[in-house]
Nucleic acid binder design. Sequence first.
DNA 1: CTGAAAGCGCTTACAG
DNA 2: CTGAAAGCGCTTACAG
Lengths: 337, 337
Amino acid sequence: MAVEGSEPRHVTIVDVARAANVAPSTASRALQESPRISDSTKRRVREAAHTLGYRPNRIAQSLRLRAGTLVGIIVPDVGVNFYSRFVKGAQDVLEHAGRQVLVLNTERQAAREKAALRTVLEHRVSGLLVATSGGSDEEVRIPTVYFDNLAPGRGVAHVACANREGVGILVDHLVGHGHTRIAYIGGPPTLTSGSERLDGFLGAVGRLRLQASAPVELADAAWSPGSAAAAMERLLALPEPPTAVVTSGDTIALGAMSACRRAGRRMPDDVALVSFDDPVYGELLDPPVTALGRSDVAMGKLAASLLLHALDAGTLGPPTEVRLPVELVVRRSCGCG
Amino acid sequence: MAVEGSEPRHVTIVDVARAANVAPSTASRALQESPRISDSTKRRVREAAHTLGYRPNRIAQSLRLRAGTLVGIIVPDVGVNFYSRFVKGAQDVLEHAGRQVLVLNTERQAAREKAALRTVLEHRVSGLLVATSGGSDEEVRIPTVYFDNLAPGRGVAHVACANREGVGILVDHLVGHGHTRIAYIGGPPTLTSGSERLDGFLGAVGRLRLQASAPVELADAAWSPGSAAAAMERLLALPEPPTAVVTSGDTIALGAMSACRRAGRRMPDDVALVSFDDPVYGELLDPPVTALGRSDVAMGKLAASLLLHALDAGTLGPPTEVRLPVELVVRRSCGCG
DNA sequence: CTGAAAGCGCTTACAG
DNA sequence: CTGAAAGCGCTTACAG
């Protein structure tokens, strides 16, 4: 069973040409269905290619064509649901466009982000989809779509969800339930979503004149449930604890919910909760979470489409900014039902 | 700000050579730190490369070297936690070895799996990490590590967790709590983990003489919570419903738990539950789930290491099969605490 | 220590 | 309709 001796060299177009008794150039054109090649020749070449098991070498094609089919995706952490589902969506539309995806992880480290950028550039990717962690400020010279965390003025497009409005919707819903002491637990305002969502909260409570009773707590940079739980505990320890809380993301909601449970507070009776980014199985949680529907897969598809568009249109003008609309999925944690 | 006119051609080694006043071959060697090049020349070349912003073209390198740095990973669905975290682990060790990862999704479709295989092969990846959905039976000619779903006799290595033993541990734990009517909800036995885990359950109840009161229900091929919930409902509708249930995976546990909740059965009092594959935030669920710790990231790292090993050792002999040990994370759903 | 030449596997003007 | 030649950007024997 073991493979003996030397590597069984790959079949090349020269092999195919020889087998079909034509020149390599003719074989190449035949395989490309060029109209300039006779049907009989095409058939002969195709057969030769088939029986030899010819697989074109994309490396060679890319070099010759000075353009490959690779697209780079740089994310802070593929292990995180949001990013992996974004990749899934992007991969899907890119694949259908005959492109492949090089996924690079940065672990939210600036150095790794820079290295990732260098690497994909060396691979001569046609374009890039990136969610920066704020690491690299260099302008990239190839078509780039920034998502989640935006990079003002750079790239061909930016995509994010309607962060401010989203939080506004969440606050409004809570107010509809009669809450006036509404707290917010969010990711740090260093990156786009953390900052815009916090902004949205501040804006909403301002508009509703609720500032005085609207405490804000922040989770850590990874938006970890642990740090969110600690934040929730701080809120519960307040002299006048909030009766409802808005969380800026699924993992934060999870942490907050578990903190409430440990503290013996019933949800939604003692404290209601609504969240941005529906937890992946949000309807299975106890209570089922009222949240803004996830837009990760859709965002991936959109970002990929925008990139594809820029790729064949040629990049011109300032980046377009696209905001994905959000929609409230009403379940039980808010007090409904 | 818009980029004007023609593409700004990439800087090549010829440009660097010219700037440093040496031949391209010398520039190439200098950049590779060849001992045959004088220090002064090296310095000159490095400086030229730096000021010109030279980035080697990996496409060209790969073609010339007849070996690239790409590794393919083929998974049923990157959007699923298990796979995305596997990718994260694999990516990490591969990246440290100077390799990049091409991720392909199959959506559990045989046709897409075959296409994915063709694609990565055309990219001349050095090796492959694949979780088949049973789609392709063809032997792949490059070093391949199969994971999760195994392919007997093929590839350089197989990695999976200790499925049978794992379920045995789960059953034993439930028996330790005094249960005798123990049900099982699992994925279909078509692929490795579904089949081995079911096997493990059957083996355990046989060994314990519990067969008569050990109903088995199956979820769908995607192991969806919805189908698991339906399975749980069937179990609860039994004349003598089980007092405990073993689920073969995290998503199945989630579905089963929600079905119990909807049916008004308290957990673990009315029905206890233990699961394979700890849900990602299993400790935050209500009740916190007793489960076998996840080994996805570790599995990714292991699979990548095995591949790397095969890559520099050269493939010989039959595939090694590695089983990741499992460990029980005791929490509340089983009745502990 | 450095350079000229060949070649990795393709594709596309350029001829015929 | 088909072929011979050049070249994408590198690296590595082979000379010197």
